[in-house]
């Protein structure tokens, strides 16, 4: 079973209505958002989405004219308590693995999920597994 989650990244000009257009496209296809974040820089930004139907979302967003890419990211379960993030980030940094970006959300069953894109995926997986840290797999995301 793959430990990777497919994230949808959408290039967006920084102007009103862009996020609404993304959201509307997903709503119309009954696609549910699990998590999302926006990285912005002046004129443009990247909207990153974790959805229940990534392939479908990718295709639909492309069809309505967005510039879209699929990226493999890691979803890591954390205990919803102080120190959880420290444990993971320390482990990666001590092993010279860089996080390109990260964002987190809390699930219905009160665990926190950290989404990370790292420079060295396979190394990161084996390190985290050794510490008994659980991954969110795509099956957990897909309804």
């Amino acid at each position: 079973m793959t430990k990777l989650i497919q994230q949808i990244s959408v290039f967006s000009e920084n102007k009103p209505g862009k996020l609404a257009q993304v959201a509307e496209t997903l709503k119309n296809a009954d696609i549910n958002l699990r998590a999302f974040t926006i990285a912005e820089s002046g004129d443009f930004g990247i909207i990153r989405l974790i959805v229940d139907k990534p392939e479908e979302a990718y295709k639909l967003l492309k069809d309505v004219g967005f510039t879209v890419s699929k990226t493999d990211v890691l979803g890591v379960h954390m205990d919803d308590k102080p120190g959880s993030l420290l444990k993971i980030s320390k482990l990666l940094s001590e092993n010279e693995i860089n996080m390109d970006y990260a964002y987190a959300f809390v699930t219905r069953d009160k665990t926190a999920v950290l989404i990370i894109r790292v420079s060295d995926v396979s190394n990161a997986i084996s390190l985290l597994e050794k510490e008994d840290i659980c991954f969110v797999c795509s099956q957990d995301i897909i309804t």
Partner: peptide, 15 residues
Amino acid sequence: EINDEMFTDKMADLY
């Protein structure tokens, strides 16, 4: 215009 095929989701690439 960004070329669809070449779009990565890294901000650094866009910069």
